[in-house]
Design a protein around this nucleic acid. Structure first.
Lengths: 342, 342
DNA sequence: GCGATTCTGGAAAACGTTTTCCCGAGCATA
DNA sequence: TATGCTCGGGAAAACGTTTTCCAGAATCGC
């Protein structure tokens, strides 16, 4: 493993000049020396030690992101946006998967802190569990106090730094509005994990739509699942078992909607004639399902990009935390229709 | 930003003891000192500087992986396997997206090298472009000579280190066998990017199946696309335009098969009655499509896990590179059927 | 009670860079 | 010819840890 001093020795210069040449300092160096150093570096296969560089240099350059799971399309889209902006800015992005485990989330924040990344983006949903959520917030504040930049995506309690806020509540309202407007009365809801703010916000929107149409959303028509296909299918099945007269299912993400569609297919329920299904997130395959899924679109890639921009560009005006909102939009496809008159 | 010497000063001990206590050295330290140091660290919110640690410590602990795109389900599955094994071993995994750009792939290898990661896993497909492929191989060899461990997934030319080999050729054969066995004669192929070994291997398998049945695969019935949905759709459309009598489409990954299904739907071609479609990879949603997609399954998560195990455990017996093969398996669903007699 | 051994903790030398000084040479100015 | 400047280059001090020595104290065996 060749080091800088070996390169310098071979080129017959001091380590100082070698460093200036190889790391693009602004201090001028004469042409002959530059050539000798570059040749020596080439010959020795010199690769600078990034750790030594970070230690010696003042300013960090890497950025970290903690997501629930990159292989989930929802986070994959967000990550794509984060990555694009980071790469364009010449920053290395550390991607950490917490698999929705708050403890692991905290560990990763500590890890990124210890790596002295310039910024941390927290891309998972917020928690209502006060234990977990305050521990994470404390961890983030510590990092923030130490000079790190923080951006969270979603509603997180007492977090430091900036936030990007997807319109989950509005999105829930749009989904509910669509179903009530079509005339549905008996609506089942397949919700996400109970303690996530994403779940409660989307539910709140749904409830607002219900109220607007003079209805309520009874607790027995809400089934909680894990935002993945199979648990979504199980929840949909349970709802239909409990009340076979249900005419519509509001499903709080598209992956679970996939499961709900599968259950409808198994039971021979025609979608949307006998059962309307509406999803959430507009993941890429939503349009390729049968029937194409009516869903609520969040601009996930842009959300990721915006989060990274906030993380990379410190606020100009003092230290006031910034919030950026992103609107939800109803994507009308073919999985919703008026309830069949009986 | 509290440092170790500040913690040591506050606890009234030397930096040496503080380090021993905080980084879990095996050297014994008396209980009272230990308590004082831990208290001081807590009070000062001490977080060790990972770069200083890596510099001082001999052995690196991080691992890097270069993938084409984590948001592609194919790589998402592989990454999941990599991540699981790395996390279980207590290693931090750096995930780098090359977006299929060989130049960026090289950059990332250099970057991981400069971070002195313990190992690099190259998860993208190999290239036939001699320019790109030899540059990447050279980069990897340099890292390998410097003591880094290397594992590649797929067939890469002249790479150092170990390899995990998905049975792409066999998988292609299985796909072809399925179609020929059913009696198809006019088969169109939607292939991946020309220069990837993944594409050529799968094609080779398809050709072998053709030969086994006394057929050939004419070049005009092969359309090259980019392994994504829309280019797959375009390629499928072009093939059908050129030869409307096609009875089957072999599509070299499921994402493109999605596009092919969409084209069939648009044109009112019933699948599988009028057009059989077979995919490749068995990505999670394959079973939820309409019709459920017949495809060739590669155990992607296990492939990722195996790659990480190879990367983490140096070969016991000398330095012989190891290869691990993973078989392909035909997953029979409903998108293939005998051609309709005319 | 004395040498030999074990313990516990500190001093200081790494690890591989960057960057701040500083110095001498060349050059223009007075 | 002195004086002041710029300019290219080196010496050395960081950066924040870990770890190898080493020293002193305590313990043990006889």
């Amino acid at each position: 493993m060749a080091t800088l001093v070996e390169v310098a020795a071979r080129a017959g210069v001091s380590p100082a000049t070698a460093s200036r040449i190889l790391s693009g300092s602004d201090k001028p160096v004469s042409e002959p020396l530059r050539k000798r150093v570059l040749a020596a570096a080439e010959a020795l296969h010199y690769v600078p030690n990034a750790h030594a560089q970070r230690l010696a240099r003042a300013t960090p350059t890497e950025v970290g992101v903690v997501v629930h799971d990159v292989s989930d399309p929802y986070f994959a889209e967000i990550t794509r946006g984060l990555q694009r902006v980071a790469t364009d800015a010449g920053r290395l992005l550390f991607i950490c998967n917490s698999y929705r485990d708050p403890a692991r989330e905290r560990e990763y924040i500590a890890l990124l802190h210890s790596h002295r990344t310039a910024a941390i983006v927290l891309a998972g949903s917020g928690h209502h569990d006060p234990q977990a959520s305050s521990a994470i917030a404390a961890q983030l504040r510590q990092y923030h106090r130490a000079g790190g930049r923080v951006t969270v995506i979603g509603r997180h309690a007492r977090h430091p730094g900036d936030a990007v806020l997807p319109a989950n509540e509005d999105g829930g309202y749009l989904a509910g509005e669509e179903l009530y407007r079509l005339g549905h009365q008996r609506i089942g809801v397949v919700a996400g994990p109970r303690p996530l703010t994403t779940t409660t916000d989307r539910l709140a929107g749904l409830r607002r739509a219900a109220r607007a149409h003079g209805h309520v959303l009874p607790a027995r028509r809400i089934a909680y699942a894990d935002f993945d296909r199979d648990s979504g299918a199980a929840a949909a099945a349970a709802l239909l078992d409990a009340d076979p007269e249900l005419t519509a299912l509001a499903v709080l993400n598209d992956t679970m909607a996939l499961g709900a569609l599968a259950v409808a297919r198994e039971r021979g329920l025609a979608v949307p004639e006998q059962l309307s299904i509406i999803g959430f997130d507009d993941m890429p395959i939503a349009r390729d399902l049968t029937p194409p899924l009516t869903t609520v679109r969040l601009p996930l890639t842009e959300i990721g990009a915006a989060a990274m921009r906030l993380a990379l560009n410190p606020p100009a005006d003092g230290d006031r935390p910034r919030r950026v909102r992103f609107d939800a939009e109803l994507i009308h496809r073919a999985s919703t229709a008026p309830p069949r008159p009986r």
